[in-house]
């Protein structure tokens, strides 16, 4: 489990765009660096982030090297009804982690 800060407004107006902010603790090792012994440091990045509101996918992103460590991401979404916002990300080591936050439509 890595540390994640997921922030979305607790209450959102129906159909109005709101911002989702995501900060993930991750080395995002690009795979293009070498260690002190000259050995390549294996690539280790988050390669995919998927956001769902209940069962509906609202955002998907494929990530590539050259994104800084501890990446920060903001995207917007809209909601027609209250539900649970779920973020799932996967990294090169096959680690998958999910974070959730409730969103109430008012």
């Amino acid at each position: 489990m890595v540390r994640v800060l997921l922030n979305a407004p607790k209450q959102v107006p129906k159909g109005q765009p709101f911002n989702v902010k995501l900060l993930i603790s991750h080395p995002m090792e690009s795979g293009q660096r070498r260690d002190a012994m000259g050995m390549a440091i294996p690539r280790h990045i988050i390669n995919q982030i998927v956001c769902k509101l209940d069962e509906e996918e609202v955002f998907r992103m494929n990530l590539f090297p050259a994104i800084a460590a501890n990446p920060f991401l903001v995207f917007s979404a809209t909601a027609e009804q209250s539900g649970t916002l779920t973020i799932t990300f996967t990294d090169d080591n096959g680690v998958e982690q999910t974070e959730t936050t409730p969103v109430e439509v008012v």
Partner: peptide, 8 residues
């Protein structure tokens, strides 16, 4: 505070 990685 939501964007500041120090908060991790």
């Amino acid at each position: 505070d939501d964007a500041n990685p120090g908060f991790l």
